[in-house]
Design a binder for these strands. Structure first.
Lengths: 204, 204
DNA sequence: GTCTATATACGGATAGAC
DNA sequence: GTCTATCCGTATATAGAC
């Protein structure tokens, strides 16, 4: 049996994932993908019919992988809110240090296909009907925080975690830091973000 | 004398700004711009030589407008740190409620031209050598916060302000809110963000 | 399955009339 | 300055040999 990522189909898909993530759909030429995969251009169409179809597969798998970091911890009934928060932040930063282009890829490609994909992936349900959000609402209540600010908090948690990767070149430029130093900073945020969120939750 | 935005040149530039902001450089066809401007395709090249040149002008002006919200308050010697923070957040949210596509446009187009443009616009100096950052460092010191966490705080301030606009479709989807409700939430953040930053600064 | 060669379409840019 | 018509490079996709 052939290893999954050494089959031609997988080689093309991996190359496509890489190039699409960096250049986006419109900025990618199928020739770039073929070259990166080390195969002939015609093979791409042989396996995937068209650039569009290949892109859809890459987008779906990217979204699936990305949401995995949520679903894998969000509905654990044993762990506390604090523990879940730490785990989610941890999962995402670990993933994004490895593949920092993912968030900007998803966000910029979502401009074209509004909401449609989000609904297909059940993003709303995954987040809003999770045990994590239930626990967050409880903590908010304990701290006399208005329920209607739930979305603000979700924005802050996601933003603090993901935004540095979206704006990576800007922060590297103003901080004059290397890729390694940037990654080290993101590691720091694994413990800092939960602390900050706690500060926000307990502030008057 | 002809009003500035009704001259043909301005009509094209405004149309270009709009289309580029939404579709990005690679996703935009010069034909789209011509149509939106209500002029013929040939005129675009007559006034701006090429798509690339037109894009550079739009990018420069967009960055200039965007940085304006910083420079206009960052070096005021009279106002306190708190006041500056409120003003900056205010300026940006007011701007982005009107033109929510700007941040994602800048961030995704920066992928192509790394750092080059940032240097040209002096982004690092505008931020790091500002009176605002000097004052922020003082507040950090008063609160026994390590100087090396400066960049973390800058990321948080910018992220809390800008990220909701970058991920607007996602948050509208999970919150099930209209454009108007989204804008209303962003208005709330004008006062919430400074409060949250203060909570982070004074947290142990 | 994989290649070379080619058809076809599209998008940026220009020539030239008005 | 503004238009119509057109050129030409480039990118996707397919035909057909191996």
């Amino acid at each position: 049996m052939v290893a999954k990522d050494s089959s031609t189909e997988e080689k093309i898909k991996n190359a496509a994932r890489h190039v699409f993530h960096i250049k986006g759909y419109a900025g990618t030429r199928t020739r770039d993908i073929a070259e990166e995969a080390g195969i002939n251009l015609a093979l791409l169409n042989y396996y995937f019919r068209s650039k569009e179809k290949l892109f859809e597969i890459v987008m779906m798998e990217t979204l699936r992988d990305f949401l995995q970091s949520l679903t894998s911890v969000f509905n654990d009934m044993e762990s506390s809110f604090e523990t879940k928060l730490e785990m989610v932040v941890n999962n995402y930063i670990t993933l994004l240090v490895k593949e920092p282009e993912i968030p900007l890829f998803i966000l910029s490609e979502l401009r074209r296909n509004p909401t449609h994909l989000l609904q297909k992936m059940n993003v709303k349900e995954i987040i809003m009907q999770s045990y994590f959000v239930k626990q967050l609402l409880e903590v908010m209540e304990q701290n006399k925080m208005a329920q209607k600010d739930l979305l603000h908090l979700i924005i802050n948690i996601i933003g603090m975690t993901i935004f540095p990767f979206v704006a990576k070149p800007i922060f590297q430029s103003i901080g004059e830091i290397s890729n390694e130093q940037f990654s080290a900073m993101m590691e720091e945020r694994k413990t800092l973000i939960p602390k900050w969120i706690k500060a926000i939750l307990t502030s008057k």
